[in-house]
């Protein structure tokens, strides 16, 4: 098969698996942490929820400009802050040299964008847990960590499942972030980027569909694994 003989496509498959791994793990952990922090009412909670979803509403093309100006090696915000704090003595190049670091910093941008969705999905599930369950647990002597692992986590499994599957879909299709931050370079290019190149630049729609099929199959397989591992029906 021609697809697998192509260096650019082989390296993009490796990168994409890294994007999925980092992105799903980070967005799920952050989503759960954020949702739990917002689970109980407090003054200003609705404002925090409103702020939380802002990254999602920022259009991709603007998100690109902003994060380029944060990571950039010539004039970036991160370099400026680290230099002012005397943590580095001259500006560093963060993207493009090391594959792992490039993929990680690029995926941070996507995690920033998709974590609001994970949080909302998990938060909706948390709101459904009856308070009495926690009360009886605390009578039984469960501490906060105990009630989190023994009650909260098991009870929001359906919400976590949806959040994880959404993260799988988003990360398998990652495009804007690597394209804007690292160009078509092998250190960060994704399968969806290759699909775009083949389809809309080479104008080879047949090969483009073949690559899309790869993503479709990967989505179904990984989602199925998540479903089997994480999902358990819950009824109160």
């Amino acid at each position: 098969m021609r697809l697998f003989g192509d260096d650019a496509i082989t390296s993009s498959i490796g990168n994409t698996l890294l994007y999925v791994l980092i992105g799903v793990a980070l967005s799920t952990v952050l989503g759960i942490a954020f949702a739990v922090a917002l689970q109980r009412p407090f003054r200003g909670r609705s404002a925090v929820v409103a702020i939380l979803v802002l990254p999602w509403a920022l259009p991709g093309v603007v998100e690109g400009i902003i994060w380029v100006s944060i990571w950039d090696g010539n004039t970036g915000l991160l370099n400026s802050v680290l230099t002012s704090a005397h943590l580095i003595d001259h500006y560093q190049v963060f993207l493009g040299h090391n594959q792992l670091l490039t993929v990680f910093l690029t995926e941070i941008v996507q995690v920033w964008q998709i974590t609001p969705l994970s949080t909302l999905l998990i938060l909706a599930g948390l709101q459904n847990i009856p308070a009495e369950i926690y009360e009886s647990a605390s009578i039984d002597g469960a501490g906060p960590w105990g009630s989190f692992t023994r009650l909260t986590l098991p009870l929001v499994r359906p919400g976590i499942t949806v959040a994880m599957v959404q993260a799988v879909i988003a990360t398998l299709n990652v495009f804007d972030q690597p394209y804007v931050l690292n160009g078509a370079a092998a250190t960060g290019s994704s399968v969806t980027m290759q699909t775009y190149f083949v389809t809309f630049q080479n104008l080879d729609f047949g090969e483009g569909y073949a690559l899309s099929l790869l993503i479709t199959i990967a989505t179904l397989v990984i989602s199925f694994i998540v479903l089997k591992l994480v999902y358990r029906p819950v009824e109160f």
Binding site: A37, I51, W67, S69, T75, L77, S80, V81, S84, W112
Partner: peptide
């Protein structure tokens, strides 16, 4: 949550209140 969300958003607002000649200066 607030820091994670708002630092890049602040950077967007900060950029929007400058001219192109002022953004991407060094130091920022």
């Amino acid at each position: 949550i607030l820091l994670w969300t708002l630092i890049p958003i602040y950077w967007t607002i900060n950029t929007s209140l400058q001219t192109d000649a002022q953004v991407t200066s060094r130091p920022a």
